[in-house]
Design a protein around this nucleic acid. Structure first.
Lengths: 329, 329
DNA sequence: TCGAATTGTAACAACGTTGTTAACTATATA
DNA sequence: TATATAGTTAACAACGTTGTTACAATTCGA
């Protein structure tokens, strides 16, 4: 059995309510006794009973993260970053990889103070009603019952193409997974087309390659196909970390120099980009930024408990590395 | 405020202890009233207060999984499978991606019934003392305070080489990450050498390629090097899912037919192997088997609460797909 | 018809906290 | 000397359950 404040009280020769106050640093108990009790409780290895504390209703300082489908390097990295960021605060994080429904039940039971929901690839219709909740995912056109943190995908594509444009590129292709059921991928795709239009770069179906998947070999195969064409592009935008990995692997394999012959820029802004065969210039909201925003938005929501359903689109940043260069004349 | 059994009691015109018994289907209350109360509580949307239930000390039916460093496809798959398997039981699972230390604190607070610890690549010296705990990781030579579930890695390598041997292969190379600080990788490596000896296949440094990493391009680069040799192997063993992905990508790229010219077999037994460019024959304890074993071992440990520190090495299975063939004369 | 089982329900004490109120000290004030 | 006034600490009621015990109403055997 664990020791309780009553045990401490008995030994300290004091009532248990005094112990409680002492441990909570209440001004209602003399400094001396306070110190004595705190000391004693440490010696006895006292650990407050969480369930009892919560019964008298107090916040748990725990935030639950729902990650329905555990996959992809980027999300895994984001989870890690969020956990790290959370560690700097008074909160800690637990994770559920169940369905949203079941995860919410679990978290409600545990009385977490708030919930972070990952819904990058899904649209859900959920009303958290009781627990403060924010979501990281695609905001799209929907009106939700909770705030959403999203990346400004069209802005990202715009930045990427602007950057390439300034370097003189006019033959740009996008290699990504164009899946109509995946709103995130669609936003990137639409972003690409809009930006191309905006900068007056003509394009057709040849400028867009649908990989049909998000794995690295999907990127590889796409490039393999491109290299058989008579006219090569001067720049490639990879739709995701894994895809871009495949892209540069295939280019290198075929002795196409990066960035001498073809420049490559990748979607997804994660540190791992620097550790690929060729350090990749990338675009996207950095996972660090995302993590910070998610954590502090969640905490703010919890601590002010004002019902807001604001959608926040974070600004992407372009990280320059070694994979892009000006077009040669 | 949530509604409580007292609210129900008031409306039902019965004492709250009767409500409690009714909801717990006690034989001490008449069937009629029982039904009536249960009905009513449903109507009122009653949800028992978890904290209160736990205060009177009862098990939580929740198992915590500690996953210190979230990475690698195989572990992610395993987590998913464990979660699915758990869903078939009365238990549910929460996850912590913190340090072992902090995760254990969190889980202790929440009074989880048991803990599953992932420690594939680390040795820890932990004494769970109060909470039942099992670990999935490398058993090695250590004596731990809790049971460990491990895969029989040397057996796996033995099976792989036996299989290739029977197909006539004598020129076999191992491509893996040989990192002295990673006990898992070392076990595979040692297993390879031992099995080669056992089947009387001569080998030297050329049969072993240290990729220096676990990513797919590490595998790619390794094969790239091999293909420059005058004598090619007839079979390759890939050390992990990702590495093997790179291996077949590179072979295909260089028009080396799999399995016509070179057979490939991969470590890690996960379903994704079937969805690579070439469905890969693989060896290892299947994640399904692992998940089942982990979940039911944990539950058994919890429910019998006998202190055992048994180490269980699961038997690997070889899954035949399209990547291996007999050696041509 | 009476005491003894049997059954159904109520009362109440836990569980380990926190917060409120009451009670007891000294000490300062009139 | 009686009396407010702080300053401390004790007592006790919550919080929402469960389990034990006590009580009342019914049924049963003799």
């Amino acid at each position: 059995m664990n020791i309780t404040i009553k045990d401490i009280a008995a030994i300290a020769g004091v009532s248990y309510s005094t112990v409680s106050k002492a441990l909570n640093n209440s001004s209602l108990v003399k400094e001396d006794t306070k110190r004595r009790i705190i000391e004693l409780s440490k010696d006895m290895g006292y650990e407050p009973n969480f369930a009892a504390q919560r019964l008298v209703s107090k916040n748990t300082k725990v935030i639950g993260l729902i990650w329905p489908t555990i996959e992809r390097t980027v999300l895994a990295t984001l989870v890690t970053k969020i956990s790290n960021e959370m560690a700097k605060t008074l909160y800690s994080m637990i994770l559920s990889v169940d369905s949203i429904q079941k995860s919410m039940e679990t978290f409600k039971k545990f009385q977490v103070d708030g919930i972070i929901l990952f819904e990058e690839n899904i649209y859900t219709e959920i009303n958290p009603n009781t627990i403060p909740m924010i979501s990281y995912g695609v905001s799209g056109e929907r009106n939700s019952h909770y705030p959403i943190i999203d990346a400004n995908h069209s802005q990202a594509m715009d930045d990427a193409i602007h950057y390439l444009y300034e370097l003189g590129h006019r033959e740009i292709i996008y290699i990504g997974n164009i899946s109509p059921i995946d709103p995130l991928q669609m936003e990137k795709f639409e972003g690409f087309k809009n930006a191309m239009k905006k900068y007056g770069i003509t394009y057709n179906n040849d400028n867009i390659i649908n990989t049909g998947g998000l794995d690295w070999y999907h990127g590889y195969q796409a490039v393999d196909e491109v290299l058989n064409r008579k006219a090569l592009p001067t720049a490639i935008i990879g739709g995701s970390y894994e895809i871009s990995g495949g892209i540069i692997r295939c280019l290198k394999q075929n002795n196409v120099h990066i960035p001498g012959e073809i420049s490559v820029i990748s979607y997804d802004n994660i540190p791992q980009m620097a550790h690929l065969e060729i350090p990749l210039t990338c675009i996207g909201v950095s996972v660090e930024d995302l993590a910070v925003e998610i954590v502090y938005s969640a905490i703010k929501l919890i601590e002010t408990s004002n019902v807001n359903t604001e959608i926040k689109k974070l600004t992407p940043t372009l990280v320059e590395r070694k994979s892009c260069a000006p077009v040669k004349k």
